[in-house]
């Protein structure tokens, strides 16, 4: 494990999330692979699927966020629809698809981070419009990635630093 403490820093979670998302791209989404484009801000019109990973040593939220149009395109791909059909998908089906995307990658993040905290448990995925911002307690980092086919997403890792502080106390 690096010197960075995953209980306090989002970066190790973001790295694991990027790896799990790349795996999702070539398997479930049947694309050629994911390209990491670099850090970005939380600005923009984004919707995201979020899921909690909570263990004895840490409390983290990870998310896969994208523009509403890209969320529909991802959902359409999973439902085997073309781009035009996917724009007609009901909101509930889009939310279901984005929730499942983050659920799948969260399993990959959990297994990749098990050496840090073997007690990690997954929460249930939820979808919100917008992204969660950093606060004094929540440390957040964002990474932009291209899932393939020009589908740009924002990967988000949010660490609750108080959880780690309480665990260490």
């Amino acid at each position: 494990m690096s010197e960075v403490d995953p209980g306090l820093e989002p970066r190790p979670w973001l790295d694991a999330l990027a790896e799990a998302t790349a795996e999702l791209s070539t398997t479930t989404l049947e694309l050629d692979g994911c390209t990491i484009l670099g850090p970005r801000n939380s600005d923009g019109d984004l919707s995201g699927g979020y899921i909690a990973l909570i263990g004895d040593k840490c409390s983290v939220q990870i998310a896969v966020a994208a523009s509403p149009e890209t969320c529909r395109t991802i959902a359409g791909r999973l439902f085997e629809m073309n781009a035009e059909e996917s724009q007609e998908l009901p909101e509930g089906d889009v939310a279901d698809a984005i929730g499942e995307v983050v659920n799948i990658v969260a399993g990959g993040v959990k297994s990749r981070m098990a050496s840090y905290d073997a007690t990690l448990q997954l929460g249930l995925p939820f979808v919100i419009e917008g992204v969660i911002e950093s606060t004094k307690r929540l440390r957040t980092e964002y990474l932009e990635a291209d899932l393939g086919g020009g589908m740009k997403v924002v990967l988000v890792a949010i660490v609750d630093t108080r959880h780690a502080a309480n665990a260490a106390a």
Binding site: T28, F79, D96, E100
Partner: peptide, 12 residues
Amino acid sequence: DSKVMRSIVKRT
């Protein structure tokens, strides 16, 4: 419980 996952399983 996910409609999209049932669809993915059927496709697979």
